[in-house]
Amino acid sequence: MSARRHLAVAGLLAPAVVLLVLFFAIPSIDLFRLSLAHMDAQRAIHHDVSLVNYKNFATNPYFHRMVWGSVKLTVAVTALCLLLGYPAAYFMVRVRSTLSRTILYAIVVSPLLISVIVRSYGWVVLLANNGVINGTLLSLGLIDRPLRMLGTFGSVIVATVHVLLPFMMLPIASALQSLDSVLERAAQNLGASPAQTFWRITLPLSMPGVVAGTSLVIALTLGIYITPLLVAGPLQPLFAIGIYYVTLSQLDFPLGAALSFVLLAFTLVVIALAARLLKAVKGSVA
């Protein structure tokens, strides 16, 4: 019985494990080895083992500016996604009519269904100097000269929030959906006002969704590059754009690999800190 069961478990896990080993673990190990190599001035790659790329990252202020840019973007995007996403998810789950709920879900998921290029160019069309927003404001006489929106850090934040909002909303909606509404009624019956019910019951019990959504948004914002690239160009100081530039313009593959690992480690640390912070918040409201 037990042996057969183990066999069944192994059989069910095997395809995913094989896929991950072949296409994730082995390339990652390979990439890590590449990050220990280095490129000389003649652009020749030397496969000796050294930490020269990591030292380069640690000492070069250009990279520090890049990290700082990504941190700022991540804080802004995560905070906005939470502030916009939680109320929207709450409303979406509580809507009575099934049709309205289906339409709301479709709207929320829509950014994920459109190619990243099309979506980002949509923002270009809206935000450009001769774009829709400036055109409207000019024709209404509200401004004399076009506002510079495209290429600013603000435009990167807006476009990134647009892409990543579903990743915040869907886990929160799912957590709220599974919350038994009888608990909220019980709280009110015991004298809790709607606000007290929200802070003491609804929010703490939907925290798993908040943690999941926040982790996803943090990880995705730290690594985002196509959207900021299209909205704000290759000079935006962002970690992933830096990696893109080093790898595809300078063709310094070892340095690109090293930066990728720094980003990976950094992302894991930030997610761990965020999860701990949210747990502390949950403890204090419960």
Binding site: D180, V182, L183, R185, A186, A187, Q188, N189, L190, G191, A192, S193, P194, T197, I201, P204, L205, A286
Partner: peptide
């Protein structure tokens, strides 16, 4: 509103708050 009526309800599913201790 329900929260100002001072009735004590025992629900069929008990509706105990799963994230709190018995005391809380």
């Amino acid at each position: 509103p329900a929260y100002r009526r001072n009735t004590g309800m025992v629900f069929q599913s008990y509706a105990l708050f799963p994230h709190m201790s018995v005391f809380d």
